[in-house]
Design a protein around this nucleic acid. Sequence first.
RNA 1: GGUCCCAUCGUCUAGCCAGGUCAAGGACGUAGCCCUCUCAAGGCUAAAACACGGGUUCGAAUCCCGUUGGGACCGCCA
Length: 465
Amino acid sequence: MVRVRFAPSPTGHLHIGGARTALFNWLFARHHNGKFILRIEDTDRSRSTEEYIESIIEAMKWLGLDWDEGPFRQTDRTEIYQKYAYKLLEEGKAYRCYCTPEELEERRQKAMKEGKPPRYDRRCREIREILDKPFAIRFKMPVEGETVVHDLVKGHVTFKNSELEDLVILRSDGTPTYNFCVVVDDYEMEISHVIRGEDHLNNTPKQIHIYHALGMNPPNFAHIPMILGKDRSRLSKRHGATSVLAYRDEGYLSDAVVNYLVRLGWSHGDQEIFTREELIKYFNLEQVGKANAVFDSEKLLWLNSEYIKLTPEDKLYELVKPFLIKECYLNEGDSIDLKWACKAIKSLKERCRTLKELAHAMRYYLLDYVDIEPKAREKYINTETIPIIKEITEKLAQLNDFTQDKIEKIFMDMVNERGLKLAQIAQPIRVVITGSTVSPGIYEVLEIVGKEKTLKRLRRIINAS
RNA sequence: GGUCCCAUCGUCUAGCCAGGUCAAGGACGUAGCCCUCUCAAGGCUAAAACACGGGUUCGAAUCCCGUUGGGACCGCCA
């Protein structure tokens, strides 16, 4: 039975890198009909917050990564870790360390200055008597030999045990540390595969020794490459939005984000766009690459536009509604005709890359009047074009059946009668109606805007000139 | 500094494990053309990569070694 977990620490929002780790775990579980477990690693009490836990859960839900067990919280399990830590202490596989954090920090700084490895010098390892001082519990790492990590992505990776440190497993305040918790939890939760970021690869041999000391068999490991920013350094705020929820708020579809993320490090031949079902069907660890990947927001934008094109209009309306309300193009309680909304969205969906853009474009369908861009006004609304606008307005006013076909006929008749280019009529009208030189086809726009609003906008311009 | 990981177009990647079919394929982005009432979308075309040096071999993007470059980790953080 495949059992995997995602174990974020709530010291920040769910970011792009964490989301991909969660996604790979989720996909692996679903592919193998296994279980996906959510575990909150909140043993860093000073930095973990409730707010972040909720934010992470919200992001997971938004991405559609549902879990089968949890969320478990390590702070609820302190006694369990203490039990195992003391077991190791009693068996002589761990020892009391009386060095204070301040002393250790001082020695670390000194070692760094002298160019020595900043590692704990094991000075408390041989103390036999029990001192009446606060202590942390340290794990006795083997001093010689080698440890091999059999990694499903990286292959066999060998570490010299002499490089491993006697790490603290229980702090002096009785709380456990990360490297100890993971081992205990992954064992107790019967995790079969640990899929996590490559930044944990160096921790793995240490964890393997803890497993052995506890008499447990280590799980399978798979360390996936990192996601880097445009400058090839670790992805951070400097590179723009890194929080998953920020992408939701910017108008990205969760399926697009998932699709983008999965292709960072994983591939299935030349295929770029996948349904969830395909992802579950095809996902495997064999096709996960070894090299780090640079996050490319342009490609995400492209994928998002592809997903917008693939999404039916009525569904898009539901998705874009919050953005319309936020931009005040629509009031909270207002109900607009769904058929009409779909028509409006259909005209715009292949011109927008995000829901935010779509909402913004919809303003000229929803509002009574629109602001006109100064440059567009200057170029297309002047003494030469006003007569044309007037003539079209009169003809449109007489049209009872305000449909695309009929509107087109009016435009074309005028083109023929007056010997004009279509653009000479279409552009000024477009500017008056949409406030911009860019929009869907003008006949389509007019039909959707409707006779009433169209005439209102045209007449206001005519009267103002 | 030590240890570990990695290396195909600007970016994501296919190909590598089982060497020849690769004068290296796809996608994003970029440029041009077509379509056209504007803008997109769509169609077509183009520029663009096997980091470098050795070796093994009849033959290397593919295997080995080294160099260089990038990343990660070395906490009573996770």
